[in-house]
Design a protein around this nucleic acid. Structure first.
Length: 601
RNA sequence: CGGGGUGUAGCUUAGCCUGGUAGAGCGCCUGGUUUGGGACCAGGAGGUCGCAGGUUCGAAUCCUGUCGCCCCGACCA
């Protein structure tokens, strides 16, 4: 017979470490790069199944549930109604929607079970990466009157995205837990109201879970305001650059950030001379044209890039010194955008990349282009140099208004730190952040496509105005760790800690020690805390190290030494000091400590 | 998908260049000594060296292919 530890039952819900499951690690797994990822694994919160796939172990699950519950409460307070949609979606729902082509590459396909012999070309099912394609048809079928609006439905559940590169543990997983909400309103004004209710709910949520998240402008709306915000947790390991100015409060994702580089009242430059073609053999880069003998500064060159939007080529003009921010091409309205290949460019433009330009009359097949889009900043050039659409030639004295064929101006360049803030003119700064949430005013894109319309009090039918909202629950969990840890381990904020109180029994073989531990645990539970009792037959050093690693906010230590003196020790994970408490006073002191812990959270 | 790296016991890894018995630490099991910040001694279990081919008398080691994983870029909660 194998010897087993006898099962010990404890009153209340407190868990005995020896009978629970908290596999801590002394060393970090080799594949963990950042602090939060290492701690997730070392503290026994998660284990990896495969790339971007994680099992939540008991401790991790408890935190996930804590965060989910806080999220649920705040979204409900913001007007959300919880429901649960399938994770498996008929591909048909997506095929009828507006972004099948764009979204399918990140979707996992799921075909009917069987021997796989009859696997169709097109998937029958996909695993849901998000749920607009499911909620909108539901609302279309169920809601038809203005009397039933507004509605805001949300769920907290698993999402599947075939991320090209899963990374950093839960930060970018292929299967992850997300809160997603969808609002339906009668008009823009109400939709904006729903939007800001969600934004407020988000702010409350992040405050309660102890994550310092800042709302960052993610899109400049067409209606004079901004109706997309990302919630970013500042962190060095973030994937996104936040462009901001502290004084003015301006903050935007790099992809959407703009600057006041071009004065609004900048007059159009007058032509200086007739355009003139000149030979530039072998010159195919901005840098080469900057060099002798040409000596044209990069910020006096027009850079012409060719992209393909939904199969049609189009051109973008930037200053030679600027970089294209590809995400900004989104405003052009194409579904799928990619850089054109040299083979695609030459027949349309008349030259290979490096000699391209958009001077009127020089484009071989101007009609083939879906448009020529110019960044505002080229107006700062006024008169400059560009490619002649003839290999080995450029043209100078090119005037923006007189000579360039431009369909439309727009903001396409990537902002650089130091440029003037669009709000205040102060220099912009940059820092890294992790996107943990997103609020987005969708408009009628989906409601029109799926026919989600309502009848107003004038018997008129209108498409509903939608908003969509997401919070990465797992990502928030990891962001909290990233923001709240020290050299020894995690320092959980009270509200999301897997347990709030750890009773550390140094001599569990002493019946009186275990008996006292039970008393302390009961007192903490009575005060409203969740309690973990470390009753393992380990040396004190091991227990203290593990306690610091898993980061329970309040630690109560019961040891033979203290027992003799009639004291126990009370220590906050976030502080260094140890407070000795006479056994006679423990119940009252613990109750007060638990209230304090819950209060400051 | 492009560039770089890596795969050896549950975890961290040495060995690979220069082919010849697969090693260590942690963890685990047994016994003992310890006992307030990751103890010590003795004994023990545990490895298809990612996978498939090839070269060779002989491959963890060299070659080819393949797969997984990690890092840098484009996408996202």
């Amino acid at each position: 017979m194998r010897r087993c530890r006898p099962t010990v039952f404890v009153a209340g819900c407190m868990k005995l470490w020896s009978q629970y499951f908290i596999p801590t690690l002394k060393e970090s797994p080799a594949d963990a790069e950042i602090a939060s990822h290492k701690l997730l694994v070392r503290a026994g919160l998660v284990r990896k199944l495969g790339g971007g796939l994680y099992t939540y172990l008991p401790l991790g699950l408890r935190v996930l549930q804590k965060i989910s519950q806080i999220c649920r409460e705040e979204i409900e307070r913001g007007g959300g109604i919880e429901l649960a949609m399938p994770h498996l979606h008929p591909a048909e729902n997506w095929q009828q929607g507006p972004r099948w082509a764009a979204a399918r590459e990140i979707m996992f396909r799921a075909d009917s079970s069987g021997d796989g012999q009859r696997s169709p070309q097109e998937p029958e099912f996909v695993l849901g990466p998000t749920h607009e394609e499911v909620i909108t048809p539901l609302v279309k079928a169920e809601i038809t009157s203005y009397r039933d609006l507004p509605k805001n439905f949300f769920q907290i559940g698993t999402k599947f995205r075939n991320e090209i590169r899963p990374r950093y543990g839960l930060m970018r997983a292929r299967e992850f837990v997300m809160m997603d909400a969808y609002s339906f309103d009668v008009d823009d004004e109400h939709a904006i109201r729903s939007y800001f209710a969600m934004k407020t709910a988000y702010e409350n949520f992040f405050r309660r879970v102890g994550a310092h998240a800042i709302a960052v402008e993610a899109d400049t709306g067409v209606m004079g305001g901004s109706f997309s915000h990302e919630f970013m947790v500042p962190a060095e390991i973030g994937d996104d650059d936040v462009i901001y100015n502290e004084a003015s409060g301006y903050a935007a994702n790099r992809e959407k950030a703009t600057s006041a580089l071009v004065p609004v009242d900048l007059p159009d430059a007058a032509p200086v001379a007739a355009i003139e073609e000149f030979p530039t053999p072998g010159v195919v880069t901005i840098a080469a044209l900057e060099a002798a003998p040409y000596a044209v500064p990069a910020d006096q060159q027009f850079k012409t890039l060719v992209y393909v939007g939904d199969g049609k080529p189009f051109a973008v003009i930037l200053r030679g010194s600027d970089e294209l921010e590809e995400a900004k091409l989104g405003v052009l309205g194409f579904g799928v955008v990619r850089a054109a290949t040299p083979a695609e460019i030459e027949p349309v433009m008349g030259a290979k990349p490096g000699s391209l330009g958009t001077v009127k009359g020089t484009i071989r097949q101007a009609g083939a282009l879906a448009g020529i889009f110019a960044d505002h900043a080229i107006r700062l050039i006024g008169n400059g140099t560009t490619g002649a659409n003839k290999d080995g030639f450029h043209v100078r004295h090119v005037n923006v208004t007189r000579d360039l064929a431009i369909t439309k101006f727009g903001d396409f360049r990537r902002v650089r730190p130091g440029e003037p803030d669009p709000k205040s003119g102060q220099p912009l700064q940059v820092r890294r952040g992790i996107e943990v949430g997103h609020v987005f005013k969708l408009g009628t894109k989906y409601s029109e496509k799926y026919g989600a319309a309502f009848t107003d009090d004038q018997k008129q039918s209108h498409p509903m105005v939608m908003g969509c909202y997401g919070i990465g629950i797992g990502r928030t969990l990891q962001a909290v760790i990233e923001q709240s840890h020290d050299a020894d381990g995690i320092v959980w904020p009270w509200n999301v800690a897997p347990f709030q109180v750890l009773v550390c029994v140094l001599d569990p073989q002493l019946p009186e020690a275990m008996e006292l531990a039970r008393r302390l645990g009961a007192a903490a539970e009575q005060a409203g805390a969740e309690v973990l009792v470390d009753d393992r037959a380990e040396r004190p050093g091991v227990k203290f190290k593990d306690a610091d690693l898993i980061g329970i906010p309040l630690r109560l230590t019961v040891g033979g030494r203290g027992l003799k003196e009639g004291i126990i020790e009370l220590k906050w994970r976030a502080q260094k000091e140890v407070v000795k408490v006479p056994v006679a006073e423990v119940e009252a002191r613990i109750a007060a400590a638990v209230r304090a812990g819950a209060g400051q959270a």
